[in-house]
Design a protein around this nucleic acid. Sequence first.
RNA 1: AGGGGUAUAGCCAAGUGGUAAGGCAGCGGGUUUUGAUCCCGCCAUUCGGUGGUUCAAGUCCAUCUACCCCUGCCA
Length: 555
Amino acid sequence: MAETDSRPTNFIRQIIDNDLKSGLHTVVQTRFPPEPNGYLHIGHAKSICLNFGIAQDYAGYCNLRFDDTNPEKEDIDYVNAIQQDVSWLGFNWHGKVRYSSDYFSQLHAYAVELISKGLAYVDFSTPEEVRQLRGSLKAPGQNSPYRDTPIEENLACFEKMKNGEYQEGQCLLRAKIDMSSPFMCMRDPALYRVKYAHHHQTGDTWCIYPMYDFTHCISDAIEGITHSLCTLEFQDNRRLYDWVISNITIEATPHQYEFSRLNLEYTVLSKRKLIQLVEESHVAGWDDPRMPTIAGLRRRGFSASSIVEFCKRIGVTKMDNLVEMSMLNACIREELNESAPRAMAVLDPVKVVIENYPTDKVETLFAHNHPNDESMGSRDIPFSREIFIEAEDFREEANKKFKRLVLGKEVRLRNAYVIKAERIEKDVDGNVICIYCSFDEQTLGKDPADGRKVKGVIHWVSAAHGIKAQVNLYDNLFSVANPAAEDNFLATLNPESLIVKQAVVEPSLKSAHIGQSLQFERMGYFSLDKSSSADNLVFNRTVGLRDSWTNTDQN
RNA sequence: AGGGGUAUAGCCAAGUGGUAAGGCAGCGGGUUUUGAUCCCGCCAUUCGGUGGUUCAAGUCCAUCUACCCCUGCCA
């Protein structure tokens, strides 16, 4: 298992340590609050690990709450998928699943309280007028003409809003705060808007829906959340969060703390962009193995523990960041190196005929399933006169740096004999279609008796016994490190993010199960795709092996 | 004079006045029937810049610079 031993330390945990020490809190309560408008991605995993991780380490609680205040963008399919992903990552939420919509009645009552206190009003300005009067970053805004409507009239109007007597966009409930505040979100922010939309939880009960800023803080307070953790872009909103809590009658005083969101090289992590990739079919779906979604990573072959480990390694700060993909890859490699059984698969087969090997002979060779772990057992591998090797493992001529098969030279067949390339056959285009070799029958399980050194080792599969399999090789979805910074991120999609190979794999792989991870020796780690069937194996490459040779200019 | 934030190695990130952790990447070397793994070693005289306080500053003060966020009836 890939796992660092120490507990994470970050500024949020330090705040909690202090709150516990000072007696401000005795129990820590957090929450993970996704909006069900898309699938969870690795950025959410960071937040999940932070919130649930804190609950675990401090013997507190973490709620799962769907922030479902905008029915137009949300869907029940997403709420189901999100629950699956959180569970798959290995976390258990406290009690039942919560929904902001559970609190619609209470939220409504708090809105009425604000109106009654003269702290909120119904504005009949058009969206355009509201925008005009808001002012700009440099200039203060101006009060709405509806700002001084008497309390009783506001109460009546809000009641009409709730009863469906106004059209969408005709009016909205606004907090009465300060139109000249340097915080734009404090310039009389919208609290409720009219929406005749069907809600996945509340159906058609409501035609007015509360805004995020009004809903989130109150939901936190209702649930007894002590530390409400969100990302940096909500820092300004914290003023509104605190304003609402301090102006309504509620006991709890949750506090919001912000950390930086995760940015990962060569991919995008914004819900909007991810939705676009799926809807415009640039990928095969939310669980396309190239997607940075939890579902995509899972199908790619990433384990939950490797994702949790990744989140542990990247830490939690307020610094903007762009994490290298190598960080994520290292987490899964480290784990799979220990846990994945080895096997041999030839992705680009070229035929090898061992001329001095008996025509009809079939030997059953033996191979360890793991080079450093005897407990993982062994398997049988058939060997015969005709085998397939990787096309790139043969060259007619090469310098001494090339430790594979070269015409006239020897190489070791993994788990088998040393062979020597004697001659080749080419097709009309000059492609090598068959390599004729001889083998040294004294070299099974031991070095040549005469002491000659054979440096290279290559993998192979018996031609008569190997089984066909589709192997999907994945590369970065985008060809630039930070696609989100591009004017048109779609223009930087990597056309070679998926390369499909018709491979030949050793027969033992017939018994692999869906989702199983394996190492194809010298090729990388692979996972059996969910589309696989007994007579149609499909493997996804999770990640390649670390390679200090093919990336140099040695070849 | 809009406001809110952030600057420690290629990337991530500890550090909370006492003399720069760790991980990823990279670079040497050893072992190896995976160019993998594993093992050994190297990788910030300096913390965005400049001043200042102090016996002592990445940590405190001043000032400058760069970058991110904020003008949805999205979250």
